[in-house]
């Protein structure tokens, strides 16, 4: 599978990264080089092999349903949440108007 500039543009748009034609051309070469290199994985016989689900086998731990049990992951921290906002509008984050 080798990709062309159309594909690169499509990927860039899916990735929400604006890309110039010059960058696109450069990226076509680089991505194809890398993709061609990873193609070798297809030579490995993986029949009957499960994809790795978790790196270190351990049981999933579930959290108790307690509000603000840990201040680090609880609510009522609006100032912290908004502290770094590039466009803070009162208690909201502002974004360019969206038409739905």
């Amino acid at each position: 599978m080798s990709i062309d500039s159309e594909t690169v543009k499509k990927i860039a748009s899916l990735s929400r990264i604006a890309i110039s034609d010059a960058e696109t051309t450069a990226m076509v070469g680089e991505l194809n080089g890398i993709l061609k290199w990873v193609e070798q994985l297809s030579e490995v016989d993986v029949s009957g092999v499960e994809p790795m689900a978790s790196v270190i086998a351990k049981k999933s731990l579930l959290r108790d349903d307690v509000v603000n049990a840990d201040p680090n992951t609880g609510g009522n921290v609006r100032d912290k949440v908004l502290a770094n906002a590039p466009a803070k509008e009162g208690s909201f984050f502002g974004v360019p108007k969206v038409i739905e």
Partner: peptide, 17 residues
């Protein structure tokens, strides 16, 4: 492309482990 690349890679990861 998901299976050809990502799933294949995760299976190989299992083999490496």
């Amino acid at each position: 492309f998901y299976d050809a690349y990502y799933t294949q890679a995760q299976k190989i990861r299992t083999l490496i482990a």
